[in-house]
Protein backbone atom coordinates (compact mmCIF):
# COMPACT_ATOMS: atom_id res chain seq x y z
CA UNK A 1 0.00 0.00 0.00
CA UNK A 2 1.65 3.19 -1.09
CA UNK A 3 -0.69 5.17 -3.27
CA UNK A 4 -3.70 6.49 -1.41
CA UNK A 5 -6.70 4.24 -1.61
CA UNK A 6 -10.16 4.01 -0.14
CA UNK A 7 -10.62 6.11 2.95
CA UNK A 8 -7.07 7.47 2.66
CA UNK A 9 -7.78 8.64 -0.88
CA UNK A 10 -10.85 10.45 0.40
CA UNK A 11 -8.79 12.22 3.04
CA UNK A 12 -6.14 13.08 0.47
CA UNK A 13 -8.65 14.55 -1.94
CA UNK A 14 -10.26 16.53 0.85
CA UNK A 15 -6.85 17.94 1.82
CA UNK A 16 -6.08 18.95 -1.75
CA UNK A 17 -9.41 20.72 -2.07
CA UNK A 18 -8.89 22.77 1.10
CA UNK A 19 -6.55 25.23 -0.58
CA UNK A 20 -7.13 27.76 -3.37
CA UNK A 21 -4.04 26.28 -5.05
CA UNK A 22 -3.92 22.53 -4.49
CA UNK A 23 -0.11 22.64 -4.47
CA UNK A 24 -0.37 24.13 -0.98
CA UNK A 25 -1.47 20.69 0.18
CA UNK A 26 1.88 19.04 -0.60
CA UNK A 27 3.13 19.00 3.01
CA UNK A 28 -0.14 17.86 4.62
CA UNK A 29 -0.34 15.13 2.00
CA UNK A 30 3.19 14.01 2.79
CA UNK A 31 2.16 13.71 6.42
CA UNK A 32 -0.80 11.66 5.33
CA UNK A 33 1.48 9.37 3.33
CA UNK A 34 3.74 9.02 6.34
CA UNK A 35 0.80 8.18 8.51
CA UNK A 36 -0.17 5.47 6.05
CA UNK A 37 3.20 3.85 5.42
CA UNK A 38 5.44 5.15 8.21
CA UNK A 39 7.50 7.04 5.62
CA UNK A 40 6.90 8.88 2.36
CA UNK A 41 7.22 6.30 -0.39
CA UNK A 42 8.08 7.10 -4.02
CA UNK A 43 4.67 5.89 -5.09
CA UNK A 44 3.09 8.31 -2.64
CA UNK A 45 5.20 11.18 -3.98
CA UNK A 46 4.07 10.40 -7.51
CA UNK A 47 0.45 10.17 -6.37
CA UNK A 48 0.66 13.45 -4.47
CA UNK A 49 2.03 15.05 -7.63
CA UNK A 50 -1.00 13.82 -9.55
CA UNK A 51 -3.39 15.06 -6.88
CA UNK A 52 -2.01 18.59 -6.75
CA UNK A 53 -0.77 19.05 -10.31
CA UNK A 54 2.96 19.03 -9.64
CA UNK A 55 5.77 16.81 -10.89
CA UNK A 56 7.38 14.17 -8.71
CA UNK A 57 10.56 16.25 -8.68
CA UNK A 58 8.67 19.21 -7.26
CA UNK A 59 6.93 17.21 -4.53
CA UNK A 60 10.19 15.51 -3.63
CA UNK A 61 11.97 18.88 -3.65
CA UNK A 62 9.45 20.44 -1.31
CA UNK A 63 9.16 17.47 1.01
CA UNK A 64 12.88 16.77 1.32
CA UNK A 65 13.36 20.16 2.96
CA UNK A 66 11.82 18.79 6.14
CA UNK A 67 13.59 16.44 8.54
CA UNK A 68 10.34 15.15 9.94
CA UNK A 69 9.40 13.64 6.60
CA UNK A 70 11.23 10.38 6.02
CA UNK A 71 11.96 8.89 2.62
CA UNK A 72 13.39 5.59 3.79
CA UNK A 73 11.61 3.06 6.00
CA UNK A 74 12.05 3.89 9.71
CA UNK A 75 11.17 1.98 12.85
CA UNK A 76 7.81 2.04 14.54
CA UNK A 77 9.49 4.34 17.04
CA UNK A 78 11.92 7.06 15.97
CA UNK A 79 14.00 7.93 19.00
CA UNK A 80 15.93 11.20 19.02
CA UNK A 81 18.61 11.84 21.60
CA UNK A 82 19.55 15.49 21.96
CA UNK A 83 23.23 16.39 22.12
CA UNK A 84 22.86 20.15 21.94
CA UNK A 85 24.37 22.38 24.59
CA UNK A 86 22.07 21.91 27.61
CA UNK A 87 21.75 18.20 27.06
CA UNK A 88 25.43 17.83 26.29
CA UNK A 89 26.30 19.42 29.65
CA UNK A 90 23.94 17.04 31.37
CA UNK A 91 25.29 13.88 29.64
CA UNK A 92 23.63 13.85 26.24
CA UNK A 93 26.54 12.16 24.50
CA UNK A 94 26.79 9.50 27.18
CA UNK A 95 23.08 8.91 26.81
CA UNK A 96 23.45 8.58 23.05
CA UNK A 97 26.16 5.96 23.54
CA UNK A 98 24.03 4.10 26.04
CA UNK A 99 21.03 4.23 23.72
CA UNK A 100 23.18 2.87 20.96
CA UNK A 101 24.26 -0.01 23.16
CA UNK A 102 20.76 -0.74 24.39
CA UNK A 103 19.32 -0.83 20.88
CA UNK A 104 22.35 -2.35 19.20
CA UNK A 105 22.45 0.16 16.33
CA UNK A 106 24.47 3.33 15.75
CA UNK A 107 22.67 6.67 15.40
CA UNK A 108 20.94 6.99 12.05
CA UNK A 109 19.99 3.32 11.83
CA UNK A 110 17.05 1.08 12.47
CA UNK A 111 17.03 -2.11 14.54
CA UNK A 112 16.77 -5.39 12.66
CA UNK A 113 13.26 -6.02 13.97
CA UNK A 114 12.18 -2.69 12.48
CA UNK A 115 10.93 -1.32 15.78
CA UNK A 116 13.43 1.39 16.67
CA UNK A 117 15.30 4.04 14.73
CA UNK A 118 17.91 5.99 16.64
CA UNK A 119 18.75 9.58 15.76
CA UNK A 120 21.00 12.27 17.13
CA UNK A 121 19.05 15.51 17.18
CA UNK A 122 19.65 19.17 17.83
CA UNK A 123 17.84 21.05 20.61
CA UNK A 124 14.21 19.98 20.75
CA UNK A 125 13.31 22.70 23.26
CA UNK A 126 13.12 20.34 26.22
CA UNK A 127 16.26 21.84 27.77
CA UNK A 128 14.74 22.23 31.21
CA UNK A 129 14.52 18.43 31.38
CA UNK A 130 17.94 17.74 29.88
CA UNK A 131 19.17 15.28 28.74
CA UNK A 132 16.10 14.99 26.56
CA UNK A 133 14.78 12.19 24.40
CA UNK A 134 12.01 12.41 21.88
CA UNK A 135 10.11 9.38 20.75
CA UNK A 136 7.92 9.93 17.73
CA UNK A 137 8.02 13.63 18.69
CA UNK A 138 6.80 13.00 22.26
CA UNK A 139 9.20 14.28 24.91
CA UNK A 140 10.89 12.53 27.81
CA UNK A 141 13.46 13.85 30.25
CA UNK A 142 15.68 13.88 32.11
CA UNK A 143 16.69 10.44 30.91
CA UNK A 144 19.75 8.48 32.01
CA UNK A 145 20.89 5.14 30.65
CA UNK A 146 18.70 3.14 33.02
CA UNK A 147 15.67 5.28 32.34
CA UNK A 148 16.34 4.83 28.63
CA UNK A 149 16.42 1.04 28.93
CA UNK A 150 13.17 1.22 30.90
CA UNK A 151 11.54 3.39 28.24
CA UNK A 152 12.53 0.88 25.58
CA UNK A 153 11.01 -1.91 27.67
CA UNK A 154 7.80 0.01 28.13
CA UNK A 155 7.58 0.74 24.40
CA UNK A 156 8.07 -2.93 23.61
CA UNK A 157 5.49 -4.08 26.11
CA UNK A 158 2.93 -1.58 24.84
CA UNK A 159 2.71 0.26 28.14
CA UNK A 160 3.29 3.56 26.41
CA UNK A 161 0.83 2.99 23.55
CA UNK A 162 -1.53 5.65 24.84
CA UNK A 163 1.23 8.24 25.00
CA UNK A 164 3.30 7.35 21.95
CA UNK A 165 1.50 6.33 18.77
CA UNK A 166 3.30 4.72 15.82
CA UNK A 167 5.66 6.83 13.76
CA UNK A 168 3.76 8.85 11.20
CA UNK A 169 0.64 9.26 13.27
CA UNK A 170 0.21 12.94 13.88
CA UNK A 171 -3.27 13.05 15.28
CA UNK A 172 -5.52 10.31 16.45
CA UNK A 173 -8.72 12.27 16.67
CA UNK A 174 -9.82 13.61 13.33
CA UNK A 175 -11.90 16.71 13.59
CA UNK A 176 -13.54 18.57 10.80
CA UNK A 177 -12.61 22.19 10.52
CA UNK A 178 -15.47 24.47 11.61
CA UNK A 179 -17.42 25.93 8.71
CA UNK A 180 -15.59 28.92 7.27
CA UNK A 181 -16.63 32.28 8.69
CA UNK A 182 -18.12 34.49 5.97
CA UNK A 183 -15.73 37.23 4.85
CA UNK A 184 -18.28 39.94 5.66
CA UNK A 185 -18.40 38.82 9.27
CA UNK A 186 -14.64 38.99 9.50
CA UNK A 187 -14.64 42.46 7.98
CA UNK A 188 -17.35 43.63 10.36
CA UNK A 189 -15.44 42.24 13.35
CA UNK A 190 -12.28 43.99 12.16
CA UNK A 191 -14.13 47.27 11.72
CA UNK A 192 -15.56 46.93 15.22
CA UNK A 193 -12.11 46.31 16.74
CA UNK A 194 -10.61 49.19 14.76
CA UNK A 195 -13.31 51.52 16.02
CA UNK A 196 -12.71 50.38 19.61
CA UNK A 197 -8.99 50.99 19.24
CA UNK A 198 -9.54 54.42 17.81
CA UNK A 199 -11.91 55.28 20.59
CA UNK A 200 -9.34 54.15 23.17
CA UNK A 201 -6.62 56.19 21.47
CA UNK A 202 -8.89 59.22 21.36
CA UNK A 203 -9.72 58.90 25.04
CA UNK A 204 -6.00 58.72 25.91
CA UNK A 205 -5.23 61.87 23.93
CA UNK A 206 -7.79 63.89 25.82
Amino acid sequence: MARFEGEMLGRAERLASLYPDPRSAIIPLCHLAQEQDGYVTEEAIAHIGELVGATGAEVQGTASFYDMLKFEPVGKYVIGVCTNISCMLRGGYELLDAASNTLGVPPGETTADGIFTLEEVECVAHCDKAPAVQINYRYFGPVDSDAFAELVGQLKSGELDEQVPEHGTLIRVLRDAPPPIPLEEIDAERARQDAEREARAASREV
Binding site: E42, G56, A57, E58, Q60, G61, S64, Y66
Partner: peptide, 15 residues
Protein backbone atom coordinates in the same frame (compact mmCIF):
# COMPACT_ATOMS: atom_id res chain seq x y z
CA UNK B 1 14.36 20.37 -8.81
CA UNK B 2 16.35 20.92 -5.67
CA UNK B 3 16.28 18.20 -3.07
CA UNK B 4 17.31 18.35 0.55
CA UNK B 5 18.33 21.41 2.51
CA UNK B 6 21.35 23.39 3.56
CA UNK B 7 24.62 21.62 3.01
CA UNK B 8 22.80 18.60 1.61
CA UNK B 9 20.91 20.48 -1.06
CA UNK B 10 21.36 19.05 -4.53
CA UNK B 11 19.82 18.99 -7.97
CA UNK B 12 17.69 15.97 -8.58
CA UNK B 13 15.21 14.30 -10.85
CA UNK B 14 12.52 12.18 -9.27
CA UNK B 15 13.00 8.45 -8.96
Amino acid sequence: DFRGRGNAIRISTFS
